[in-house]
Simulated assay, not measured.
Amino acid sequence: MKATWRLRMAAAQREVWTGAQLRRLLAEKAGLQMSSASVSALLTKQPAQLKLDTLAALCTALDCTPNDLLDIDTTPVAAAPTPPAPVARAAAPAKPGRSMPPL
């Protein structure tokens, strides 16, 4: 599953053009204080992970839903081939007088 980050598009549709504007909105509407560097990273990079609280704050600040911020590819991926089962070795024939094969 792969997600595409669409924060810049969602922000621009709401006439939020700078990190400073987004930072102010996050503080005013959602009560989330973020550093300028963190807001800048959200706008310029696709995050590898995102806290649900941050996602909720972005949705509140931009008056949108997570669907406006994320585009998730739900195309099934091909399953990795399963390795073949190990081949069982044949037990050595039992020697006369023994009840179990040697270890």
Rank of each mutant, 00 (worst) to 15 (best):
K95P: 01
T75I: 04
R98V: 05
T82N: 06
T75Q: 13
P66E: 02
L52T: 12
S35K: 12
R6S: 03
E28N: 13
K29N: 14
S38N: 14
V77P: 06
P47L: 14
R8W: 02
T54F: 01
R6V: 01
P81L: 08
P102R: 10
Q33S: 05
L32K: 15
T4S: 13
A92T: 13
A30R: 11
S35C: 12
E15Q: 14
R24A: 15
P101T: 11
M100T: 02
P102Y: 03
Q46T: 15
T60L: 15
A57M: 07
A37W: 04
G19T: 09
A79G: 10
R8C: 08
A88F: 07
P76H: 02
A88L: 15
C59T: 08
R23F: 08
Q13C: 08
D68M: 02
D71M: 06
L70F: 15
A12C: 06
A94F: 03
G19W: 06
S99W: 03
A57G: 11
P66L: 03
L69P: 00
A91H: 00
G97I: 05
A94M: 13
L43W: 06
T4P: 03
W5I: 08
G97N: 09
A79Y: 00
A48M: 02
L103F: 04
L32R: 15
Q13A: 11
A91L: 12
M1D: 04
S99P: 03
W17M: 04
M100D: 00
A80F: 05
R98C: 13
P84N: 07
S99D: 07
T4N: 12
Q46S: 15
P76A: 02
A91K: 03
P101Q: 12
P96D: 09
W17N: 07
A56C: 08
A88N: 08
A78K: 11
